[in-house]
Nucleic acid binder design. Structure first.
Lengths: 200, 200
DNA sequence: CAAGGCATGTAAATCGTTACATGATTTA
DNA sequence: TAAATCATGTAACGATTTACATGCCTTG
């Protein structure tokens, strides 16, 4: 269960409440991980029962108690063991956008183009947000913590995020051009050809 | 539920059995989609109950009946409706490898490098397999069906697959270099710095 | 005064994986 | 002779999403 390790990983940076973790995931890991609060709270309880983290309750007026969780040495061991499990395979990934585009050939040319342009716009926005995050972070790191290994991984992962966005944007632009310059008056006659026949 | 649309999409190319669909997904969509047979069979039944597909049973000796499913006109309508749902957002993706690398900074330099090299190897292999698939397919298409819109989308999606692999391989190589040339004698003093502090 | 942020939880439903179950034929 | 291929299914478990539930404070 990766969410368990995600929470340990986040709490290894600093103690946090479940609410903060949710925001953290929304802001910092959107392009490779996420979770809902309804999943986070129960897993935090589990982790506490196992002794991987411990909570400090802070009572508040007119709000539920705030529980600040910290990782324990046992938890740190579990995290380390997970990090060491060999990355010798590529886990199966799911990308609903590629899935849809894979089948989209049955629509009209202009419908296909419209879908491609919508994604292009969305990814332009994402790339911009990603770059702003990186820029604003570099400032803080220079002033504060300095460059330790954790900071370096953060930067590298974000560099990959940008690279990935740029690659997809590039592909979308090329693909739009290809489809645009495509004489779509003569579609396939059978209408039901199998593009996979040489592929099994 | 995307699996439902996946099955409709596949059956829109040609009639298939559940068993064939499973193989099809394993071979042709690995880098953006997958499903287990234990999930496929029940969904096929659902689709049949809804009238989106219909089955033709073929009895066999010493094997369970083979059920060849075909998409109906109603099913094709459902598929088309799904394909038209606007791609104006980026769905949340999960990548367990990036997740692990995001937290891996707490390990020793050589452990990090070992993990990065394992992934690099795995992706080299994947890129090679992808390129072979593309090459062998291009042959068949030239001889057979010719180039219709479905064939073109297949090619474009696979081009993206290669691009993605190349981008990740490139990033892994750069990252390995960065970590290698990193003087890791002086690690952070507090050991618990938060790389996210300027990020929420 | 409505919407969003703060802060935590539970319940129900759905989705996905792993394991169980069968059994002949072909390949290494 | 062990493993893989063909061919379909169910059961149990685990993971994830959506909805329900509360209630004050701050901002627009």
């Amino acid at each position: 269960m990766s969410l368990m390790h995600t929470l340990l990983g986040v709490l290894n940076w600093r103690p946090m409440t479940g609410y903060e973790i949710k925001k953290y995931l929304d802001n910092s890991t959107q392009f490779f991980w996420h979770a809902e609060h309804s999943q986070i709270y129960p897993v935090l309880k589990d982790l506490e029962v196992h002794g991987y983290i411990h909570a400090q309750s802070i009572s508040q007026v007119n709000k539920p108690d705030k529980k600040i969780y910290s990782i324990t040495e046992v938890g740190r061991g579990v995290l380390r063991a997970w990090l060491r499990e060999p990355l010798d395979e590529i886990p199966p990934l799911k990308n609903p956008v590629l899935l849809k585009l894979f089948f989209i050939g049955m629509l009209d040319k202009d419908e296909i183009l419209s879908q491609l342009r919508l994604q292009l716009e969305a990814h332009h926005g994402r790339l911009k947000r990603l770059q702003q995050e990186v820029a604003s972070r570099v400032q803080g790191v220079i002033q504060n913590a300095g460059r330790n290994q954790e900071n370096r991984m953060w930067e590298l992962i974000y560099q990959y995020g940008e690279l990935q966005e740029q690659a997809f944007i590039h592909w979308l632009e090329i693909t739009i051009q290809v489809i645009e310059s495509d004489d779509q008056t003569e579609v396939s006659v059978s209408g039901n050809d199998d593009p996979s026949q040489n592929n099994m």
